[in-house]
Simulated scan of single mutants.
Amino acid sequence: MDDEVRDRLLPGCLIETAAARCFFNLVDGERGSRTYRYDSKQSEFGYFYEPWQERWVVFDNRMGALFVTTCKTVDEATNLLIDGEELFTP
């Protein structure tokens, strides 16, 4: 899927370094004395390549419940993030 199509189908989708940074902020959660310090907007979603696993990490927090999975291809990753409502559907 080229960037233009992805941007039309997935407005606001984070990719590459921005996606990885957001993902690790979301899963980090507890710091210090168990205080949750990341202010989630419940609108974060995206995908990035993880070279150690040699897979794409896909995450979706648009519904306020963080979903995470991995995929073999970038097309598989984007397809997981798209449905008729442009919200993740398990």
Score class of each variant (00 low, 15 high):
residue 1 M to E: 12
residue 2 D to F: 04
residue 2 D to N: 15
residue 3 D to R: 07
residue 7 D to A: 14
residue 7 D to C: 09
residue 8 R to V: 11
residue 8 R to F: 03
residue 9 L to T: 01
residue 9 L to Q: 04
residue 9 L to G: 01
residue 9 L to E: 05
residue 11 P to N: 15
residue 12 G to K: 09
residue 12 G to T: 09
residue 13 C to D: 04
residue 14 L to C: 02
residue 15 I to R: 05
residue 15 I to V: 09
residue 16 E to A: 11
residue 17 T to V: 02
residue 17 T to A: 06
residue 18 A to I: 01
residue 18 A to G: 04
residue 18 A to Y: 05
residue 20 A to H: 06
residue 20 A to M: 12
residue 21 R to T: 12
residue 22 C to P: 01
residue 23 F to C: 13
residue 24 F to M: 11
residue 25 N to Q: 14
residue 26 L to D: 10
residue 27 V to Q: 11
residue 27 V to A: 08
residue 27 V to D: 08
residue 28 D to G: 15
residue 28 D to M: 12
residue 29 G to Y: 05
residue 29 G to W: 02
residue 29 G to M: 07
residue 29 G to C: 10
residue 30 E to H: 08
residue 31 R to T: 11
residue 31 R to Y: 05
residue 32 G to P: 03
residue 32 G to D: 12
residue 33 S to H: 10
residue 33 S to E: 13
residue 36 Y to R: 15
residue 36 Y to D: 11
residue 38 Y to C: 10
residue 38 Y to F: 15
residue 39 D to L: 03
residue 40 S to C: 08
residue 40 S to K: 07
residue 40 S to F: 02
residue 41 K to D: 05
residue 42 Q to I: 01
residue 44 E to I: 03
residue 44 E to V: 03
residue 44 E to T: 06
residue 44 E to Q: 10
residue 45 F to P: 08
residue 45 F to K: 10
residue 46 G to E: 04
residue 48 F to C: 05
residue 49 Y to L: 07
residue 50 E to K: 03
residue 52 W to I: 03
residue 52 W to F: 02
residue 54 E to P: 00
residue 54 E to R: 13
residue 56 W to Y: 15
residue 56 W to S: 07
residue 56 W to V: 12
residue 57 V to F: 02
residue 57 V to D: 03
residue 57 V to K: 05
residue 59 F to E: 15
residue 60 D to A: 04
residue 60 D to I: 04
residue 61 N to A: 00
residue 61 N to D: 09
residue 61 N to W: 00
residue 62 R to G: 06
residue 62 R to S: 08
residue 63 M to S: 11
residue 64 G to P: 05
residue 65 A to E: 10
residue 65 A to Q: 08
residue 66 L to N: 01
residue 67 F to Y: 09
residue 67 F to G: 03
residue 69 T to A: 08
residue 70 T to A: 08
residue 70 T to K: 09
residue 71 C to K: 15
residue 73 T to D: 13
residue 75 D to E: 14
residue 75 D to Y: 03
residue 76 E to S: 14
residue 77 A to G: 09
residue 77 A to P: 07
residue 78 T to C: 07
residue 79 N to E: 13
residue 79 N to V: 05
residue 79 N to R: 13
residue 79 N to D: 13
residue 80 L to T: 10
residue 80 L to C: 14
residue 80 L to Y: 13
residue 83 D to P: 00
residue 83 D to W: 00
residue 84 G to T: 10
residue 84 G to V: 07
residue 86 E to D: 12
residue 86 E to Q: 14
residue 87 L to G: 03
residue 87 L to V: 06
residue 87 L to W: 03
residue 88 F to W: 14
residue 88 F to P: 04
